[in-house]
């Protein structure tokens, strides 16, 4: 099986240093970058699938050239190779440009599955995967808690979370699947994996390479723009209560009553 995993470098939420630059775009220098956490679940799922069925994993990332640093960590987890689409014209891209670029890059690849994360922690709304699937006319399977391919039959079954339980979905491959944390904890890269990742291939592609017109994508034609930002109102000081359990309980009830919550 050949699985493509869509991974995006994002500012590390644990560093809590994310900010916008003066142009109201993400200031990538302000914060260390990591692989988007939800994409690591997708990669873990891909690793388990290739362990069970054999095959290779290609990471696909659209990001500035520095994106290859974060891709190394994902390669160290065990992906086979990476493709980084980087082009100065892509600065300030909206979800539409991102989807067009990812779809165009996928268009040149042969694969059985594309796996994506549920959303990105830097403000993404979990819309890119459905857009990519739609542009490529790929079957789209969301919210995956379990993925069961049948390579011989060329089909895949997915247990997909719903508000009341789950749906068992089935589609022909190739298909695009959005992964959730329920697929399993991402592994830590082993020392061997880290060493091996150094020599793994990261192919860089420009817009020209993937056949996308630079005038059709990027910040210049972005469909949305941030016009204003503000800080949310600061939270007040913390009231701390120590004492008996009953005193603690009474303090909570009084506090909630005062705020008219109960």
């Amino acid at each position: 099986m050949h699985i493509v995993v869509l991974t995006k470098p994002v500012p590390d939420p644990a560093a809590a240093a994310e900010r916008l630059g003066p142009d109201l775009r993400l200031d990538r220098a302000a914060s260390p970058a990591v692989v988007n956490a939800n994409d690591e679940y997708a990669l873990e799922a891909a690793l388990k699938l290739t362990e069970a069925f054999g095959g290779e994993i290609t990471l696909l990332t659209m990001a500035p050239a520095g994106g290859s640093d974060t891709m190394r960590k994902a390669l160290a987890m065990g992906a086979t190779r990476g493709i980084l689409v980087a082009d100065p014209a892509l600065a300030g891209s909206d979800t539409r440009s991102t989807s067009v670029v990812l779809a165009a890059t996928l268009g040149d690849l042969a694969y059985d599955l594309v796996l994506a994360g549920a959303d990105t922690s830097d403000g993404g709304g979990g819309v890119v995967p459905a857009a990519v699937a739609t542009l490529l006319r790929l079957p789209y399977l969301g919210n995956a808690a379990k993925i069961e391919p049948d390579p011989a039959a060329g089909r895949v079954r997915v247990r997909s979370f719903t508000p009341i339980g789950f749906d068992l979905l089935e589609a022909p491959m190739p298909a695009l699947i959005v992964c959730t944390q329920a697929l399993g904890e991402p592994r830590y890269p082993s020392l061997k994996g880290i060493m091996a990742a150094r020599s793994k291939e990261i192919a860089t592609r420009t817009l020209g390479d993937i056949g996308v017109d630079a005038a059709a994508v990027g910040g210049a034609v972005a469909s949305t723009r941030v016009v204003e930002t503000r800080k949310p109102p600061a939270r007040g000081a913390t009231t701390m209560v120590r004492g008996t359990a009953a005193e603690g309980a009474d303090a909570i009830v009084a506090f909630l009553a005062e705020r008219r919550i109960i």
């Binding site: 819309v127 739609t134 949305t224």
Partner: peptide, 24 residues
């Protein structure tokens, strides 16, 4: 909505109509 169905609709509709998306 910004839940799973809303996201899927938004992504697919954007690809079909070329409309941009503001999320959440």
């Amino acid at each position: 909505g910004s839940g799973p169905d809303g996201r899927d609709i938004a992504g697919a509709l954007s690809a079909l109509t070329d409309l941009g998306i503001l999320v959440n």
